[in-house]
Amino acid sequence: MIYLIRHTTPLIEKGICYGQLNIDVTDSFEAEASQIQQVLPADIGQVYSSPLMRCHKLASYLFPGQTIHLEPALMELACGEWEGVHWDAIPSEVIDPWMKDFVNVAIPGGESYTQMHSRVTQCFTRIAEGPKPVAIVTHGGVIRSILSHITNTPLVDSFGAFKISYGCVMQLQAGATGLLHETLHHITTEKEQHKPSNFKKQG
């Protein structure tokens, strides 16, 4: 079994762009983390985590005494010049090309979804070939990327196809046609904002 775990609620104002910004988590951390802990088995032997604080902190809480393997490839999308900037403050002439094709267009000073997907899937394949059960504590974009990879879902459709809340736990297990995924834990929280508030989907 492979368990994909998203970090708990981050301590940041809604609407701020934060990919690899190393932010902390809110005061509800222990309550959220204890709920996650309840759906995880006790026999997880390998733990991998994004090195960003919001993930490493959760991995250390969930798996005390275990070695946490920090993997830079499991970090969220690199948002480059937009890190820490409110989405609505990014000039339209700068953000429009990315919004029209976020899969292939890189954020200035950062990366595209395709570039993130490449590093994530290489790392995931290596982890999946290793000992199990294994836990991967990471970010929403990374989990969507992994799920797109195992289900052959186009990256452009991944946000609509996979609902990944803060603290979400996905279980992956081998099936006849590949890895199957199941949601073990999901919290309905207020809608996240990862694009300008006035953005309308193209076409």
Rank of each mutant, 00 (worst) to 15 (best):
His185Asp: 05
His149Tyr: 15
Thr8Arg: 01
Gly178Cys: 14
Glu129Arg: 12
Val94Glu: 13
Ser49Cys: 14
Glu32Pro: 03
Gly45Met: 08
Pro64Met: 06
Ala78Gly: 13
Asp88Ala: 02
Ala59Trp: 07
Gln173Thr: 09
Leu21Glu: 09
Thr8Pro: 00
Ala161Trp: 01
Gly160Thr: 03
His194Ser: 10
Ala161Met: 10
Ile187Lys: 09
Thr153Gln: 11
Leu58Glu: 07
Thr153Pro: 02
Val142Asn: 03
Gln35Cys: 11
Lys195Pro: 00
Ser92Leu: 14
Thr188Trp: 04
Ile2Gly: 01
Thr26Trp: 07
Thr153Ala: 03
Tyr18Glu: 07
Thr153Gly: 06
Leu74Lys: 07
Gln46Thr: 12
Pro41Tyr: 11
Ile143His: 04
Leu62His: 11
Asp96Ser: 15
His56Asp: 10
Pro72Ser: 06
Tyr18Phe: 15
Asp157Ala: 14
Ala31Lys: 15
His7Leu: 06
Asp27Cys: 11
Lys201Asp: 10
Tyr61Asp: 11
Gly110Lys: 03
Glu76Ala: 09
Leu172Val: 04
Pro97Asp: 12
Pro51Val: 01
Gln171Tyr: 01
Ser50Asn: 02
Val47Lys: 10
Ser118Pro: 00
Ala89Asp: 15
Ile44Leu: 08
Glu129Val: 03
Pro97Ser: 06
Gly175Asp: 05
Gly80Gln: 01
Gln173Met: 05
Val25Ile: 13
Asp88Arg: 07
Ala73Trp: 00
